[in-house]
Structure formats: structure tokens, C-alpha cells
Design a protein around this nucleic acid. Structure first.
Lengths: 191, 191
DNA sequence: TAAAACATTTGACCCAGATCAAAAAATCAC
DNA sequence: GTGATTTTTTGATCTGGGTCAAATGTTTTA
């Protein structure tokens, strides 16, 4: 059991308790993967078969609309990252994922995850509970997108991405918020 | 096993297979509840301890902002309805739920659900898988809210709420979409 | 370290959709 | 069925923020 895995185990233990048996099953199935800044982690032209737990670094999930990259969200330290629909349904979806910083991750394949679900019911519980957390974030984001000015959207973003927001280039933040780059620049300058 | 429960069992069986044992456990714990049009199903001033599976009818989840009711979503036939965060965390949250039509539902309490999770791991799996579906809807909605005109938002709404959309009053649709009532009225008239 | 590539800022202009106001239509309650 | 309430429509006006264009700043690469 490496030093490295402790961050990941700690993450699981926020939701369930890990038996030694499950720990070793996880260890057997999870591998290490590093990405350089700008490197493509997942290509929308392929089916997403892997999920990455970010130990250090920062990713960006985005899709292309009218030839422009639209950022969808920014998976960071201690979060899983994949193309959700593609990963679950085993079909292609629209999302690309790239590393916006040099990153270190733990990698788990769908097949291995399915194996874990089938043999360790706690993993189902972990999945249910952790999805609940993300669920809440999505609902908050929907509310924030509907009845707020551009400035309020930006302020909500800063709250959500707390210590990460300054690591994300302005243009990416603008498309994440659904506002023009120029507008965001003006908002920033008047603070 | 009543005739009525078949709709609910069919719903579960979209995700997992139900053993006779689980079926009877569900039967023991699920009760029937009817609501009249306009009746409050859940009050934001209380903790949400029950989840309702709508067999017939239509609900609306909303919250109050600046004294006005903002519709969040419209749970309909063959869907569960509750105040998600309140139900999960056992704390108060901002959502009210009301029946916008005379409705018939099956009711399951948190305690009973927890019991089912603890004794039937398939239920954890059901929960994980069905949350995945909802997850996809939320992500689509986020995309639809960001880069679209009021008309496109309305068209996306009609696609999402397919055969239900004509049962929802205009004003509620407008606040769901985050556009002014007047704008929605104009969009409708020019179709 | 220069020049190419990329990201951010600033300026001018314009329009989708918000807001305010009031009429018309639909629904409800007695 | 009729008046009262609620909901929807229509009209007039105004503004936040989008778009286009160009300047400035910052990274990257060779």
C-alpha cells in the first residue's frame, strides 16, 4: 500500500469504511497516471473507459460548440474525473478532458469498477452517496445560472471554486459561466 | 400485491431485478397517498422525510426568491419526488412541493428507505443507476441554460417535458426557464 | 531574445429580453 | 351564472451584456 493511495482511501472513507480486503482490491485495480499541462486526458471521439482520481493538478472538461471550446467543469484535487455519460453508457459523448496543469492521478477502468460493484456492495453505497454531493452542486449551479447577473455568476463561481479559481484562465471561466470573455474581463477590472 | 404497485415495480425493474422477498419488503413499507390540486406536498419549513412516487398526476418543486415563486422542476408520472438535499441530509432546504393536478402517489419514508438500503444491496444499485439518469438531465439543462436564446430554452423545455408541457401553466414554465413571463408569452404566440 | 502564438483588456455599438403598465382572457368561488 | 381573482397577452421603454474590432500583455518555441 503506497503512501500515494492514502489520499484516495481518505476520499472513500468520507462515505464508507474500507475493509482491508476492499483496500487491497482497490490497490490491485488502481494504477498511477501522470499528465502534462495541455495534454488530452480523454478524447470525445472515443468511448470513455477510465476514471481518474486527481491527486495533484487540475483538469478541464469541455465540448465544442460553433467551433469554440465551452468549459463544462474543472475537476481538481481529490475528485474523480471522466466523461460521465460516456463512462456509464459506454457510448461516445461530447466531452473532451484536458489537463490544465501538470497532474498526477489514479486511474480506474470501467471493467474494474464494475467488478468492484459486483463484489463489494459498499462500493455501490459509496457511489450513491458521493453522487448525492455532486447532485447538490449541479442544482446550485442551475439556480445560479437562471436569475443572476454576470457579476453574480462570477461571484458564485469564486465561491464554488474557492482556492482553485485563480488557476483557471479567464477565457475558460467565461465559457463555463456562459458569459462573454470581454464581459468577464470588465467585471474583474472593477473589483 | 395490489394492481397499483405494478407501475412502481416496473420502474424499479428498469434498473434491477426484484426478488419476491424485496417486493414484499417494498409492499410492507410503501403506502398510498393522494393529493388535491393546489395542495402542499412538502413544506420548506420542515425537514423532508418522505419520498413520493407519482402514479398519476403532476407536482411542482419551487422556492421563493424576492417574494416570487421560482419553479425548480416538475416531477410527473413514474418519477420520485422529494426535496433532495433535505431528504438526504435531514436538514431543512428551500424547496416547497405542491400538486398542480389531483395526484395519486406511493409514499416511502427515509427510515424505511435506509432500512431497505441496509438489507437489500440491490436497492443501493437501483439508487446509483437511477441517479445516473437524473444526472444526465441536469447536465443537459445546465448546457441549455448557458448558451441559448429564450426561444431555444423553451424548445428544450418542450423536448424535455414532452407530453407534460401543456399541463403546466405559463408562469411556472417561465420561472423554470429563468425568463420573464411576458417573453414566454410572446414566444408562444409566434409559433 | 525575437517573433510567433495566445490571452486579456478596452472601446464603440446594438439588440434580446427585462421591466413597467394595463387590457383581455380564463378560472374560481359562492 | 356572475362577480372576483388569477393568468395570459399586448404595448412601450430601457439596459445588461453580446458582438466586432483593435490594442496591449503574456507565454511559448526555436
Amino acid at each position: 500500500m503506497t503512501e500515494i493511495n492514502t489520499a484516495l482511501f481518505r476520499h472513500f472513507e468520507k462515505y464508507i469504511s474500507l475493509s482491508d480486503e476492499l483496500k487491497s482490491a482497490l490497490n490491485d485495480r488502481i494504477s498511477f497516471a501522470a499528465f502534462k499541462k495541455g495534454e488530452l486526458v480523454h478524447d470525445a471521439n472515443k468511448i470513455c473507459t477510465k476514471s481518474y482520481f486527481i491527486q495533484k493538478g487540475l483538469f478541464r472538461a469541455y465540448f465544442i460548440k460553433d467551433g469554440k471550446e465551452i468549459s463544462e467543469y474543472f475537476p481538481a484535487e481529490n475528485e474523480w474525473s471522466n466523461s460521465p455519460k460516456s463512462f456509464i453508457t459506454r457510448q461516445k459523448d461530447i466531452y473532451f478532458i484536458e489537463a490544465i496543469e501538470d497532474s498526477e492521478t489514479f486511474c480506474l477502468s470501467v471493467e474494474d469498477l464494475v467488478f468492484l460493484f459486483d463484489h463489494y456492495p459498499e462500493m455501490e453505497r459509496y457511489s450513491r452517496l458521493s453522487m448525492g454531493t455532486v447532485f447538490g452542486h449541479l442544482m446550485e449551479r442551475i439556480t445560479s445560472l437562471r436569475f443572476t447577473t454576470a457579476k453574480e455568476k462570477y461571484e458564485h463561481f469564486i465561491r464554488t471554486y474557492n482556492d482553485i479559481h485563480h488557476r483557471i484562465p479567464l477565457g475558460m471561466v467565461a465559457s463555463y459561466l456562459g458569459i462573454a470573455q470581454e464581459t468577464l474581463s470588465r467585471i474583474r477590472s472593477e473589483r
